[in-house]
Design a protein around this nucleic acid. Structure first.
Lengths: 198, 198
DNA sequence: CAAAAATATTAAGCTATGTTAATATTAATT
DNA sequence: AATTAATATTAACATAGCTTAATATTTTTG
């Protein structure tokens, strides 16, 4: 099991001794997801939080009319789940789908609780993770309330350059909250130097 | 200094001994804000996180064109600040204004850091605070992306009944991201049984 | 490599929401 | 209580963004 990236991710904020690393590793499962397969499906209980070792995931909400709204993307070194439903063991509100073949590490709610109990400093790590997530989401909210679509798009490109070159325009549109047709008309054609490599 | 509400707020998630309580109290300042006065002003460094003992605060972002976007309201028992700027000691992106005469407890960044050091369990408390804030903001984001203004308004009334009866329609409009004129035309007139008491 | 599928572009017409401005109502101030 | 200021309502007109659909382009698949 490849936990080196995970350990270094955690070690950015707290220091772990080898016993603690071993505990964490014992509670984690490795999983591969093929492109277009799901890690979380709307309606089924959200049991895991995922750490991305490689690949690309997209979390999105599916409305009754079939419209998709992207909640977040996740690439290497990111944590992702339907946080509310994971923490409360509820049916997921989102789909989490692999956009490319991906490798993830899975941690269950019970596993996380056990880590909190046995490694109290992990609360600090998770606090920082949640602080960052909250601040990110709040900034996004402000921008959605104050900026027109074109600027939201440009901000997205500037903030997530790596993700931008891996996802489709349609998916960016659904993240910033407009239709792909509309985004296509407003974005500056000069900036379309996109040649996708997968 | 009235810290009873604060202590019970913290004690919902972690248990504090009296030494710890005294430490926290030593790092906190009490402050009264008169209606229409500011606790945070856009551009000046955001030094404190506030816990509301009484009253009503509103955090909002002011655009260059003078448009206001409400980031959050805060009533008794809530924590509020410009989280990103507070955590990073940056100039605030928001204004935090008292909508009624209010009593708050102020905790500086240095004070918070000291609490984290001396009461490691406080990381757990703050983790939970951040988890809740993140989940709330994410749900708001999803609703903004998927629901029309009228439903966003009704969800606001349902989710924040106490706040709803204390703030103006204009302020709710700026929270859900529409103009007050438009909200006025779309909301169901039956539901306007609002008789404000301050 | 060709065919099929997905994505992106373009355009016409439509709708939700914004703007401005005038009036009515409610709350704050003297 | 009267005056002033803020908020809410209403309406006419303007616009950002949506819908549908047709076409072009790129990517995926057999």
């Amino acid at each position: 099991m490849n936990t080196s990236l995970l350990i270094s991710n955690i070690s950015k904020h707290i220091s772990l001794n080898s016993k603690q690393m071993i505990l964490i590793e014992s509670l984690i499962e490795e999983r591969s997801v093929k492109k277009n397969n799901y890690l979380i499906e709307q309606g089924s209980v959200c049991k895991y939080i995922y750490f991305v070792n490689s690949g690309l995931l997209r979390a999105y909400c599916l409305s009754q009319n079939g419209k998709e709204s992207t909640v977040m993307f996740a690439i290497q070194d990111w944590w992702v789940t339907d946080m509310f439903c994971f923490l409360n063991s509820k049916p997921a509100m989102i789909q989490l789908k692999a956009m490319q073949d991906s490798e993830v590490l899975c941690l269950s709610k019970g596993g996380l609780d056990q880590i909190f109990e046995e490694i109290p400093e992990f609360n600090k790590f998770f606090r920082i993770l949640m602080q960052n997530a909250y601040c990110r989401e709040q900034l996004r909210m402000i921008q959605n309330l104050t900026l027109p679509a074109k600027e939201r798009y440009e901000n997205f490109l500037a903030k997530y350059p790596v993700i931008s070159e891996k996802v489709t325009l349609k998916q960016i549109a659904s993240y910033i909250g407009v239709t792909p047709e509309f985004l296509s008309t407003v974005r500056d054609p000069k900036k379309q130097a996109k040649s996708k490599k997968s």
